[in-house]
Nucleic acid binder design. Structure first.
Lengths: 265, 265
DNA sequence: CAGTGGTCTAGACCACTGG
DNA sequence: CAGTGGTCTAGACCACTGC
């Protein structure tokens, strides 16, 4: 049907696992999982960039020498993980943080009344942006060594004039070389969108640890609350492909007018 | 192949939508979605009970007069929503809160060190259990009218001797008629498991709103912290089938030794 | 070994998008 | 209208479980 493309990239079905070592793991991997890994690699290497479309299912099926159904199942999983987005009749697109309707994809803070859209865009104020050496505390979640160079950024987000979020962000200095307070201030759009376009770093997944803490003097001033006021502490580690941590973020949220929303199933 | 069962329950493929009214919605529903609804109905009515296996894919395919692949896709979605659980070689089982390895499925509080299992089971202390009339605050999330009868339950959960969670639970009195403090105290296992077995109410999904608050006198005493201590306020609405709210729960969590864990993607 | 869920294929047709 | 993703089928075979 379709002509054969990229003869070197097609997978070999392996029913038998590697038998090296004392491996007790069967390690059977179905074809569609292997295809998924191959597509993932192309996403990682930037063969298809955020926002762009990837080849059609038929094209990929031809390229990998498998049926359309198998490619489909691979893409199903990538779609479920929000790595790609399908649009019927148009194609499959690499997910991005830059689209308007998925902005602040990782932000779970909602206004108590109305929804995010009724609130308008957040006003952002950069407090600080400096290069420094990572303490052990910061280095570990980023899988760096203490003393490695990191960028630290502090900012306040306000909604309708009310300062609501105080965030400290730590980034490994290497991948984010050249990031400045100025660039951040002049950029309109989510921070993760800037990371994509300027540094080629796609945040794919994140983990958050949430606690209740009392506002210290610095936080109290910036968030305009009394010292000791309870605040939501949100510590986020964000990962790019391959579970590689690329950002550590410590946020303090005011929850007198907003709440953190979570869905369980 | 298989003989035809339940001739009355097979769906009619409807490509054309209902055209009544000013309906602008195409309302096209694929076959597998219709099958999913039918399976859902059987789950709801209790044709298959929590923990039991449902008929095999082949049997369901015969019953609904569709191919195995179509049934499979319907079950795929139910499985993704945690309504059923598949086990290769064994069958598909109705999900339950009673299994050991999925206990406390909705509890996101984790110890800072170690994991949930290293901590051992929670010690539970029932403070109070009474029948009363719902205030507007309580009635609305449960879609009751103010003044309707509800059961209120207050309890403390402790981990390794340290009181950590103070919870107030409100339940509609109707479906939970007969629930007593004594029954709760003598039951060993998750509360939601008791709801399943004794009252036939399966919690399927929940929403949580999280805030930071200061401990009041009552909470401070029960959780053994100073008055004013920041606590995590977790307000949960839990739903059974059909998005019917069946429980309102307001928890106060100590987060000095534990944290609320969330995964974003 | 039979029965279950899980994978894979090939082909047909449908719904949606854009030129 | 051609091209895309979405649905559905029928049949083959594989991996896993328990008897």
């Amino acid at each position: 049907m379709a002509t054969i493309l990229s003869p070197l990239t097609h997978p070999v079905a392996l029913t038998a696992a590697s038998e090296a070592g004392a491996g007790v793991t069967p390690a059977f991997s179905p074809l569609y999982q292997q295809i998924k890994v191959l597509i993932l690699k192309s996403l990682q290497t930037g063969e298809w960039k955020p926002g762009e479309s990837i080849p059609s299912e038929m094209d990929l099926a031809a390229r990998f020498r498998v049926s359309q159904g198998t490619v489909r199942k691979a893409i199903d999983e990538l779609s479920a993980e929000n790595l790609v987005m399908r649009r019927q009749g148009k194609g499959t697109f690499v997910a991005t943080h830059a689209e308007h309707h998925v902005q602040y994809r990782f932000l779970r803070l909602m206004p108590d009344k109305g929804d995010t859209s009724s609130e308008g865009p957040a006003e952002r104020r950069i407090i600080d942006c400096k290069r420094q050496r990572a303490s052990a505390d910061i280095a570990r979640p980023l899988t760096l060594r203490p003393g490695d160079a990191v960028l630290q950024l502090r900012r306040v987000l306000a909604f309708q004039g009310a300062p609501t979020i105080l965030e400290d962000v730590w980034l490994p200095a290497g991948p984010f070389k050249g990031l400045t307070a100025e660039r951040l201030a002049t950029y309109h759009g989510p921070m993760y969108a800037l990371f994509e376009t300027e540094f080629g770093v796609r945040m794919v997944r994140a983990e958050e640890k949430i606690r209740a803490v009392a506002a210290d003097a610095a936080a109290a001033e910036l968030l305009e609350v009394p010292v000791g006021e309870p605040l939501l502490s949100v510590e986020r580690t964000a990962f790019t492909y391959n579970d590689l941590p690329m950002e550590l973020r410590r946020g303090l949220y005011r929850t007198d007018t907003h709440h953190y929303k979570n869905e369980l199933s």
